[in-house]
Design a protein around this nucleic acid. Structure first.
Lengths: 340, 340
DNA sequence: CTGAAAGCGCTTACAG
DNA sequence: CTGAAAGCGCTTACAG
């Protein structure tokens, strides 16, 4: 079970450790004879380089850390995929850590990682981010994903949640909706806040003085269902709903159906994210597509850049604009309403 | 940017490196005075232990590697979640690597990982597994997930795909289906093969001598759609379809709808996996629930055990039985058919 | 081209 | 309780 070391290989090949190291690393001009002997010995002994030792002397780990919030589902999967693919191309390994209930856990995870990675990718959309910033290890290049924090790290990548929300509301209005409601995400979530801001701003512009109906959800289907029921029981129920993410929108769809109303004719619905599910619910859900995979790739590229240019403090910010995808849930003829 | 070392901390705290090491590791009885000084110095210097050095001397990395095939979606996400949660409890880090197109890539990934982990979790349901086995580093405890390979590793965890398939076919038969077809997964995929085996065996038992209709898919929604269309254009189209995974079943649902037929009355449908989407399509999809999160947890526990009992070669095998979940897509009154 | 030797940062018996 | 020292496995100038 115990692995063999370079010394064992060198001994078996009857060369010095230095020479063995050279052929293992494929460097230098080494005699073909030596190379062969070392390679043979290495494979016979099932030699695997001890990574800790190598990283100790090179002070490079060739590993990046990925810190995720407590995320569940497609989004998580996609972003890892994007990062992992990009990392493989750069020859980097990926250390992941998810599900951090509270700040203490997130800090501990970051701290534990920072000694073994060349850089850190941190996604932490909740409010504690400020405190997290205070706890940052300064010795490691860091790129934030979708974070509200401006000052920290060597780079940041985020989604234009505000712009996306504006587009959604404009779209609903263009399709004839006059009473547009909003189902919000968690109050402490930065991305949710930005979507709310986009909603409010656009509503104020399009329907000045009108009252805005919103309900809070927690990004789960269940909460979307509940919020939609609440909205439908208002005295003036909405004829269009922008929902802060697709998962909640799916719940909203259910609630509308249960109320015996039609989507999109009675209530048009638009979500956010474009998770795969969006295409499969009935009616298919209009939404804002975020290239999550691409986001992951770019985040990693940003980090690799930061690692390479060391402490040159040129900070890069990337903003990804979501794209409106119109499906059946909001596709309707512009109707003339009799009442106001 | 450059991190400080234990030596720096010791110097600042005016103690020996040994003492500094002790308080950092929280061991031994150390004077309260020393402890305080070291802790203060460490935080002032933003000291982070160099993990490579530590692992070099302890010959423990506190990291496990996870090797996944080219997987996309919920399944991937869930299994990582299960493993990550379990790993955190054990104080282990998780190195992940996905998307291995071919054997060479998978082998390279495994090799690259094996020098930096205490154990390996390998999921590789495709046929190359035999070759992969040959390439295994022997120095690292290894647990396979859903692998066809029997001989390798210190443990294995797998899904009872055969049993699940049997249950699905029996269920369809019990609900009145008389011509049950099967949409297969990729031919080289072990799990897909097992599901096919279960289908064939049960069909042979229930409808001896009857011809079996099957079509191959590749686990994507699109291929399920195509396979279903092909099945519907047969001279004797099926009145029940067992589909090798939920994603393809979703495609099948679409094809049936497009053909103007009703689910479940004209064709009952059952999938496999119970991905979240299954509940949201219309009609909701009957399927076999596999506790993927739980599977991940258990896989890690198995590995931790293997790591702890070192080379005692007591190999553990765990088989998880999927559970039949009946939803609308196969809920129908048993009908009497006029024709044969 | 090749080898002896120093050193990466840390832990851990071993003395005191 | 504390420190000096050896050693974990590897890479890399430095000589030869």
């Amino acid at each position: 079970m115990k692995g063999s070391t370079l010394r064992d290989v060198a001994r078996a090949a009857e060369v010095s450790i230095a020479s063995a190291s050279r052929v293992i690393n494929g460097i230098d001009s080494v005699t073909e004879d030596v190379r062969e002997r070392v390679l043979k010995a290495a494979s016979a002994l099932h030699y695997v380089p001890h990574w800790g030792a190598r990283s100790l002397v090179k002070s490079r780990t060739n590993t990046v850390g990925l810190l995720l919030p407590d995320i569940y589902g497609e989004f998580f999967s996609e972003i890892i995929r994007g990062i992992d693919d990009a990392a493989r191309i750069c020859g980097l390994h990926l250390l992941v850590s998810g599900s951090h209930g509270d700040l203490a856990e997130a800090t501990a995870a970051m701290y534990a990682m920072s000694g073994r990675v060349d850089g850190l990718l941190v996604m932490s959309p909740s409010a504690d981010s400020e405190d997290l910033a205070a706890a940052l290890p300064l010795s490691v290049p860091l790129v934030t994903i979708g974070s509200r924090i401006e000052g920290i790290g060597q780079g940041a990548i985020r989604i234009d949640n505000f712009g996306g929300a504006c587009a959604a509301v404009r779209h609903l209005a263009a399709t004839g909706c006059r009473r547009i409601a909003f189902i919000r995400g968690p109050a402490e979530n930065f991305e949710a806040q930005e979507r709310l801001r986009g909603f409010s701003a656009t509503m104020a512009e399009l329907f000045p003085g009108a009252e805005m109906q919103t309900r809070e959800g927690d990004f789960t289907e269940h909460s979307g269902y509940g919020a939609m029921r609440a909205l439908l029981s208002c005295t003036a129920p909405p004829d269009g709903v922008f929902v802060a993410n697709d998962m909640m929108a799916v719940g909203a769809l259910l609630a509308i159906k249960e109320a015996g109303l039609n989507v999109p004719d009675d209530v048009a619905v638009t979500g956010f994210d474009d998770i795969p599910l969006a295409r499969f619910v009935s009616p298919p859900l209009s939404t804002l597509r975020v290239g999550v995979y691409e986001l992951g790739r770019q985040a990693l590229d940003l980090l690799v850049n930061a690692i390479e240019r060391e402490n040159e403090s040129e900070k890069t910010d990337i903003v990804i604009s979501p794209e409106l995808v119109v499906r059946e849930s909001s596709k309707r003829e512009i109707r003339r309403t009799a009442e106001t």
